[in-house]
Design a protein around this nucleic acid. Structure first.
Length: 208
DNA sequence: ATGACGATTTACT
DNA sequence: GTAAATCGTCATA
């Protein structure tokens, strides 16, 4: 039992065990925490997500039951991390939900940075040097800022002392949630238009 | 073994 | 606005 796992604010298994569209909304306003071995922390509040609905969702990596080594974490228990590498240089971080063998997940698309801004700036480099809104306002940006990559795919966020979710300040109740089509999946046919992207209205840290 | 592509980001015109 | 960067993954053979 690590100090992190004992934290009363930390999300337990059952909180992740939802359909992807419901978890995507529930995660808005919650805190994503990254902890390093030296005890230092980075964190941010989730302000934008996307739901990937599984074998029927043409935009989803598990579409049609595809089950390759990369996607295998999506078939694991709710609360598992699914991190993949894309475009030869970027990582994207997802949280698996639903039931075991039901390959559904939520993509974390943007954070409002709250802890460790200096370390995030150092990791993000030149592109974000002039504007903190560029630190975590995109799925690959937040992975770079928090040092999340394929080492973390398959990680159990319920037990890990490297990455987990904490209940955030109770802003979710007072902030308007918008939804719309997901980003970057134009070739997914009818599923490309479905409103599975969620974000806090007017949040400056949302992507695009 | 090979080729096409990607749940993106950045820099540049 | 457009294009380049850059390589693991997957389907096809």
């Amino acid at each position: 039992m690590t100090p992190a796992a004992a934290d009363p604010d930390r999300w337990t298994r059952r909180r992740f065990a939802l359909p992807a569209d419901r978890l995507a909304r529930a995660l808005l306003g919650q805190r994503l925490v990254r902890r390093f071995e030296d005890g230092s922390r980075l964190a941010g509040l989730i302000v934008e997500t996307e739901a990937y609905m599984g074998v029927e969702d043409r935009a989803c990596h598990s579409y049609a039951g595809r089950r390759t080594p990369r996607v295998e974490p999506m078939y694991m228990q709710a609360g598992t991390a699914y991190v993949y590498f894309t475009y030869g240089m970027h990582h994207c971080f997802n949280i698996v939900c639903g039931e075991i063998d039901e390959p559904v997940a939520v993509l974390i698309r943007a954070l409002q940075p709250t802890e460790g801004l200096d370390a995030m700036r150092a990791r993000r480099g030149r592109a974000a040097s002039a504007d903190d809104r560029l630190l975590c306002s995109g799925p690959a940006r937040l992975c770079q800022a928090l040092d999340i990559d394929r080492r973390h795919t398959g990680l159990d966020l319920v037990r890990s002392d490297s990455i987990w979710i904490e209940t955030g300040p109770n802003v979710a109740a007072t902030r308007a949630i918008k939804s719309g089509p997901r980003i970057g999946i134009d070739s997914a046919g009818a599923w490309a238009h479905k409103p599975f992207r969620y974000w806090f209205e007017d949040d400056p840290n949302v992507s695009r």
